[in-house]
Design a protein around this nucleic acid. Sequence first.
RNA 1: GCGCCCGUGGUGAAAGGGAUAUCACGCAGGCCUCCGGAGCCUGAAGUCGGGGUUCGAAUCCCUGCGGGCGCACCA
Length: 569
Amino acid sequence: MQKFKEEIGRLLAPLVSLDPEEVITLLEVPPETTYGDLAFPCFTLAKKRKKAPPLIAEELSGELSGRKGLFWEKAVPRGPYLNFFITPGAFGHEVLSQIWENGEKYGHTDLGKGGNVPIDYSSPNIAKPFGIGHIRSTVIGHALYLIYRALGYNSIGINHLGDWGTQFGKLIVAFKRWGEESKLEADPVNYLYRLYVQFHQRVEEDPELDDEARSWFRKLENGDEEAVGYWNRFRQLSLENYELIYNLLGIEFEHYHGESHYNKMLDRVINLVQDKDIARESEGALMIDLEPHGLPPVMLRKKDGATLYITRDLAAAIYRYETFNFALSLYVVGAEQTLHFQQLFKVLELLGFDWSSRCIHVPFGLIRFKEGRMSTRAGKIILLEEVLQRSIDMAREIIEEKNPDLVDKEGAAKAVGLGAVRFGDLSNDRVKNIEFDWEKVLDFSGETAAYIQYAHARICSILRKAGAEFAEWDNSAASILVKEEETALIKTLAILPDKIIASADSLRPSILARYLIDVAREFNRFYHNCPVLGSEGELKHGRLLLISATRQVIANGLALLGIAAPEEM
RNA sequence: GCGCCCGUGGUGAAAGGGAUAUCACGCAGGCCUCCGGAGCCUGAAGUCGGGGUUCGAAUCCCUGCGGGCGCACCA
């Protein structure tokens, strides 16, 4: 597609007195393929030439009449646009050979030039179960991690564990009062969770529990041996539980730097703030007034001397800059924390760090129940493990029914089940809230990962039947695909690189996810209208090359979303 | 009270100032002696109300309504 654009850029530039690059950025894809394949809009020329855009389009096509290029065969004006039509054979050859040569790397580029991109994602709160609410950060963050990798950046996954804070005071109080050693041993995370919920129930009648919890947290910050002992134990038990989920999802982090990791740096942050003279004491607490910047004040230190979330986040941001000298620093965290990040980045700016503009909060909406929001404290929560397990079970059932002879049923069930959960979350990026609905999670038809995976499996099946005889490149076979369904599919395959870049630029994996739906849809159209194994000679070979390229694009795209592409399902 | 986000067919979503608003679920019909029917084809149905900016608005601005989130000792 890029070569096609470049050709038109060179062609049009002298006619419209613009640089070829300028022409290329103006080019659009028409809404209907029948209009053409690339459109040059004439609006911007209207003022310069003092003519109506449709007239300009008309004139340009007149100047081009009778000419054609390597990749385009005609230019037709339609309203204010000049539409170019590609030459199917030459274009097909170009696209298929690109995919053939680049294989797994098709779509990847080196735009990032190795720049570091720390990505703060997943980041569950220790001692709380891994709820469905965390899946969005985990899945979106991991996809961005993979996508930035594909663009030549050095993504660095950071699991910013919530392993510090008042909740540990609460847990210690709860465990000391009502805890039982044997139950903790048996099922640590769920038991800690029950204690946490219990604490919040009891605190209704006994508000003093809160004070007690705060005091235990202060002890923890002061290195009290008993408090640290509990903390270590709870943290370790929780981590072991998370590992199971990350293994299942195939996610690895470069760093497990939780909030506690920055404890040593908090004094330095406080000093920095005081040196810059942007903080003041208020009612015994240390505050920064952000009123002049239209934001509420932030508190760095409570009157009892304990620090807060934002203090540790400041330390973390500085640490990440000093360690990675990042090109970009991403925080994949829920939209409800938008204000927090505005404050965080503003304080960094006030501290004189010009890199604060390279820190970006990537927000996403809440997952809610029909009845209202989820709440860890109230015990209203769905466990991610349960969602994943049920999805895999459902996939297994369907496979049992549709493909009982499949050898690796378990592998396919995992691919499909996990893919469904991930894709459900990725395909509708939106900052909107999501209503949790079992039926939707467990639905494998329509715009789902299974739809894409199914297309992939079908292609693999055809390629297996075709055998080795067609597994070779052939220039003329790659150039003879001119049917409408073939050309449409080729054009779709051509834009994978653009979609990966757009996903990264806009921080929206959904762009890539939706694109893969398009690829699968175009493939299905082709499949139902163009027999592959039923064709003869060069046409058969050409179609095999086409489906092989399609398979590659689907596999590459799904890989960047963290979704498996099984050969059979 | 103040601030931020979101309102698109019955339902869930796409469209990042451009052409006739795209897709899925569901609904009504059709397609397997044929490469895997988790599929394909056809159909009905939609931009919350009111102002503006623009040659052009689902998109930008104002306003009303509806929903969500946040706002000093949680994270």
